[in-house]
């Protein structure tokens, strides 16, 4: 080990400090909102709350957890996350497998056709008109089907499949194994880590889905969580289960908004440790190999 010069030591310290300060800004806003959601309205509006609740109260949480509409959009988002992730995985796997096979004749043309769509995005209005033509307006399918395959995710799976030794295919085929069984009984069990990564990417994508909901879901009763959250952030008084202007309550729009933002983020925070385990490796598999 080389001896470090004074300048290098100083740099190391400054580097740690800069990174620690920047990292603190990543988590502080969420902690601040969490503290706000458990604080009294007076404390929240008089700039007393920083990272810890002041005049601890659960009044805001009691209000939003009683809010049936919020739970309904939570349920809708849960449904599209679970159903969407399953459907997306199925479509992506079935598209990736033939494209990973060197002996599949359409591999190159189809791959080229797909990569072109990464450079030329479908413009918003013709995309909107296409989905509407298909009768998906105000249908939850509009949040799933029009983006069912994420090209990047599909390529991650394909790249992984390409790394599985071909000797397996041959021995399986000698045993009379057909393509579907080869995929589902031999390839998929070997691909668990990458499937977990991609599944989590899809799940987060569905959980956070917003633009498609803005475009296709006009009926407020079918709004997913992010749409509902956006609506509440602009008119937070609707969050309360009671009329908050009649009477003296231990919450206000500030604390309600804070609680709702945390509510909508909680599932992401809960899966984050699992996400972390996989996503770094997974996101690097996405580089195109040919």
């Amino acid at each position: 080990m080389m001896r470090q010069s004074t300048g290098e030591k100083a740099f190391q310290w400054i580097n740690y400090m800069v990174l620690a300060a920047a990292a603190a800004t990543m988590i502080t806003p969420l902690l601040h909102l969490l503290a706000m959601s458990f604080s009294s309205p007076i404390a929240a509006d008089s700039k007393q709350v920083f990272l810890f609740p002041v005049d601890f109260t659960t009044a805001s949480w009691e209000q939003i957890l009683q809010n049936g509409e919020l739970w309904r959009s939570f349920g809708i988002t849960l449904f599209i996350t679970v159903a969407g992730t399953l459907i997306s995985m199925l479509f992506s796997i079935m598209t990736a497998f033939p494209l990973s096979r060197k002996d599949f004749w359409l591999r190159r043309p189809v791959m080229l056709g797909i990569v072109i769509t990464m450079i030329f995005n479908a413009p918003m209005i013709p995309f909107f008109l296409t989905v509407r033509e298909l009768g998906m307006m105000n249908s939850l399918w509009a949040l799933i089907i029009p983006g069912v395959i994420g090209t990047f995710n599909m390529i991650i799976i394909r790249t992984f499949f390409m790394g599985i030794p071909k000797e397996l295919d041959d021995s399986a085929r000698i045993d009379g194994c057909h393509e579907f069984r080869l995929l589902f009984q031999i390839y998929l069990p070997l691909s668990k880590p990458v499937l977990a990564t991609v599944g989590l990417f899809y799940a987060v994508g569905y959980w956070n889905t917003f633009q498609r909901a803005v475009l296709f879901i006009r009926d407020p009763e079918k709004w997913p969580l992010q749409m509902k959250l956006r609506a509440y952030l602009t008119s937070p008084e609707e969050l309360a289960a009671v009329n908050m202007f009649l009477g003296d309550y231990n919450f206000n729009t500030t604390t309600l908004k804070a609680a709702t933002i945390i509510f909508a983020t909680l599932p992401i925070i809960m899966v984050y440790p699992y996400l972390q385990k996989y996503f770094v490796k997974g996101s690097l598999l996405g580089s195109l190999k040919e």
């Binding site: 056709g113 769509t117 479908a122 413009p123 013709p126 995309f127 008109l129 296409t130 989905v131 983006g147």
Partner: peptide
């Protein structure tokens, strides 16, 4: 969902 809108 990609080529039809492009053509559109």
């Amino acid at each position: 969902f990609k080529y039809v809108p492009l053509a559109g």
